[in-house]
Amino acid sequence: YLEDFKSQASHQLLAAQSRYITQKQITQVLEREMSELYSQLEKKNLLQSAGVVSDKRAGGRATEANT
């Protein structure tokens, strides 16, 4: 009976672990995307403050299209 219970408990723990790992993978994807977004935003901020956007409008668009 104890053996039975032990196997049940270890299954539950494994299930909890796998749920955690899945969720962590989601987080990792989101985190990667987030860093990407930040670097895009920074590029734009840089372009704006340097006034590059107004001088090279076409270039600015191209950058946009690439991202």
Binding site: K24, T27, E31, M34, S35, Y38
Partner: peptide
Amino acid sequence: HDVLHALQVMR
């Protein structure tokens, strides 16, 4: 460490 890392990424 999970929480710490996420907060760093989100700045």
